[in-house]
């Protein structure tokens, strides 16, 4: 297996944990894993990306443009910002809820509908989830990272089974958050059930 996956989001959304969990799951199956994450000033609410490269014996930390098999967008504008990294036949998994930066509230605006429409046609496979509603269902606004992993497992976007991902996740989150994260993963995995009425997933 060779797979390059890029996670794009906003500092504070938990992309680092998600990328580590993907890498750890690959390692538990005997694959090599490399990741690279934004750490530093950008973590303060700026644009961040995490890159996961699986199954390369040795590789550079950053994914080349046009080489990502999967982009997981924790936020629509951040998914679009990194679209150039997606392979022609790559897949997108995007949480549709925007995080409006201060610059946008101060008057710059945020073209949400255009961004979502562009993403919808940008890849042969684009799955939207309502991250906000799913997090609410899971009982916390801070578990989007585990919700998206559940959704990615359900959509078959990662080369791992639900149980493989779940086992890694439970081994790497603090004990007091195990139940919450189990719930978040389950809600993400069943995201189509929760979103059946608005037809969000394409």
């Amino acid at each position: 297996m060779k797979m390059d996956c890029l996670l794009a989001g906003v500092g504070g959304q938990g992309t680092v944990l998600a990328s580590r969990l993907i890498a750890q799951t690959a390692m538990s199956k005997g694959f090599t894993a490399h990741t690279s994450e934004t750490i530093g000033m950008a973590q303060r609410g700026g644009s961040v990306i995490s890159q996961v490269r699986l199954g390369h014996a040795a590789c550079a930390p950053a994914i080349p443009l046009g080489a990502a098999d999967l982009i997981i967008g924790f936020e629509p504008a951040e998914a679009l910002r990194n679209l150039a990294y997606l392979k022609a036949d790559g897949a997108l998994l995007v949480s549709r809820n925007p995080i409006r930066p201060v610059t946008s509230s101060l008057g710059q605006g945020y073209a949400l509908d255009e961004i979502l429409a562009y993403l919808a046609q940008a890849a042969p496979r684009c799955v939207f989830i309502d991250g906000e509603a799913l997090c609410r269902e899971a009982g916390s606004g801070k578990v989007l990272n585990v919700v998206v992993l559940g959704a990615a497992a359900a959509e078959g976007l990662l080369s791992f089974s639900k149980d493989e991902l779940l086992t890694t996740m439970l081994a790497h989150v603090p004990a007091k958050f195990v139940e919450l994260n189990k719930q978040a993963f389950a809600v993400g995995f069943d995201h189509r059930k929760y979103e059946a009425e608005d037809g969000g997933a394409k």
Binding site: Q43, G66, L80, A84, A122
Partner: peptide, 20 residues
């Protein structure tokens, strides 16, 4: 050899780091 950049992108909000 470089892939073509996606064209006709809608405007993206700039997102600099900010005080929490």
């Amino acid at each position: 050899a470089l892939p073509a950049a996606p064209a006709g992108l809608p405007p993206l909000p700039v997102r600099p780091p900010v005080l929490c």
